[in-house]
Simulated scan of single mutants.
Amino acid sequence: MQILVVGGTGWLGGEVVRAALARGHDVATLARGVSGAPPAGVRALTADRDDAADVARALAGVRPDAVVDTSGYTVAGARTTASHLAGVGAYAYVSSLNAYRDWPGSPIRGVDDPVFGEPDDDPADYGPMKAASERVLARALDDRLLVVRSGLIAGPGDPTGRLGWWLRRMARGGPVVVPVDVWDQPVTFVDVRDLSGWMVESVECGRSGAVNATGDVGVTTFGRLLELCRDVVGDDARSPVTWAERDDATLLAAGVQRWVHLPFWVPADEARALWDIDTSSARRAGLPSRPIEETVTDLWAWLRGQPEALDDDAAPAGRTRPGLPDDVEQALLG
C-alpha cells in the first residue's frame, strides 16, 4: 500500500511513518522540510501546505492509496489536501477534542456532541480551526474520512515537555509542589505508538467516521501519575521526593497558571468536566491503550538519553516552557 503521511517528520508523524514502514508499506511524507528528514527509503515531498500551487507542484504525479494527516493547523491547509487528495481510498485526519464546542466546560458524551461551526467562530482559534478542517475534508472524502479527535498524546519523544517536566522535577528531588485535590482525579492519555499504529491499521481497512482518540477515563488518576513519575525516576533522583500539597486557592493566589506551571492541573471544579470524555468510539474501533506505566517508563528512558531534554531551562521550540517557575515554587514552599 502507498501511504502519504502529511507532516511525517514531526513527533506523531514520524511515529506514523515508522509504523507504516514496519507494516511493509511504501511511504511518502509531505512536510515543510523544517523538522528534519524522514527515515531512509521514505520519499520526502516538500511544500507549504497553505499554498495551493506549492502543494500541487509537490504532489504532481503522486497517487497514494491512503493518507494519514498529522499536521492540520489551518483550514487553508485542509483545503489544499482536500482538493489534491480527494481520490484516495482512505484518509485519517488528526483533529482534536478541542473541536467540541462545549468542552472543556462540559463533558464529552460522544462523537455526536456539537462541534464548533457557528458564523462567529474564529477559524484562527484552534478548536474552530479543527472543526472547520473536518468539514472541508468531509465534503471531499465523505465516507472515506476517519476523523481522529485526539486527546493528550504521551510517550517517548514527546516535544511538549509536559509529562517530561514532572519526571524532570522528580529527578531534582526534595519537596515537590502538588495540588491537594488530585489524588483521585481521573486523567487520561493515548500513547503515541498506540495512536500511530492504529491509524495505519485504520487506513489499511478503510475505517471511517469520528473517534474520540484517547485512553479510557479511569485508567489512572493524577495522583497515581505523580506517584508513578516519582517511582520511575527512582534512584535517579538527587534526593528523596516528598509532596508539598497546596490547595487550589493557594496555587491561584501564588500566580500558578492553569495547565502550564503544573502540567495537567486545573482547579478541581474545572477538572471534573475536562477529564470526563466518552471514549467508547475508540474502544469500538480497536484503539489500544497500553498501561500508563509503560508510557511513563519509556518516556523517562528517552529523556535520560537526551541530555538537552533534561535541562530545566530548555523549552520546546515554539512553545511556552512548561513547569513551575523557581520563584513561584520557592514562594509556595516558603
Rank of each mutant, 00 (worst) to 15 (best):
R135S: 09
P119F: 02
L97S: 11
W103N: 10
L145H: 11
T74Y: 09
A82K: 08
D113V: 00
Y100Q: 10
P119I: 02
P104I: 06
E134R: 11
T81N: 11
P128A: 04
A92G: 02
D113T: 08
V136S: 10
A76N: 00
A124S: 15
S106D: 04
R101H: 03
D65G: 15
A131N: 09
L85T: 12
A92S: 13
V94T: 14
V136M: 07
G127A: 04
E118S: 07
A66D: 08
A82T: 03
A78I: 00
K130W: 01
R63Q: 14
V62M: 06
V62T: 07
V68E: 06
R109S: 05
D121W: 07
L97T: 14
H84M: 14
A82N: 03
S71F: 12
T80S: 15
V75H: 00
R144M: 01
T81Y: 01
V136K: 08
R79M: 04
A66G: 07
A131G: 00
R79T: 06
A132W: 06
V115T: 09
P104L: 11
V94R: 10
S71P: 03
H84G: 14
Y93L: 13
V75M: 07
D65S: 09
V136C: 12
G77V: 03
L145N: 12
R101P: 10
G105Q: 14
A132G: 00
H84P: 01
S95C: 01
D142H: 14
S71M: 09
A78P: 10
M129K: 08
R144V: 01
P64A: 01
V88Y: 04
A90I: 07
V115G: 02
S133H: 04
A66W: 06
R144Q: 06
P107G: 13
R79E: 15
A86P: 05
D113N: 08
G87W: 11
S106P: 00
G127Y: 10
V88W: 04
A131M: 05
T80G: 13
E118T: 10
W103S: 09
A99F: 05
R109D: 15
H84K: 09
A90Q: 08
A86M: 07
H84W: 12
T74R: 12
L137I: 03
D65K: 01
E134C: 11
T70N: 11
Y93T: 00
A138F: 05
G105K: 15
N98K: 00
V88L: 01
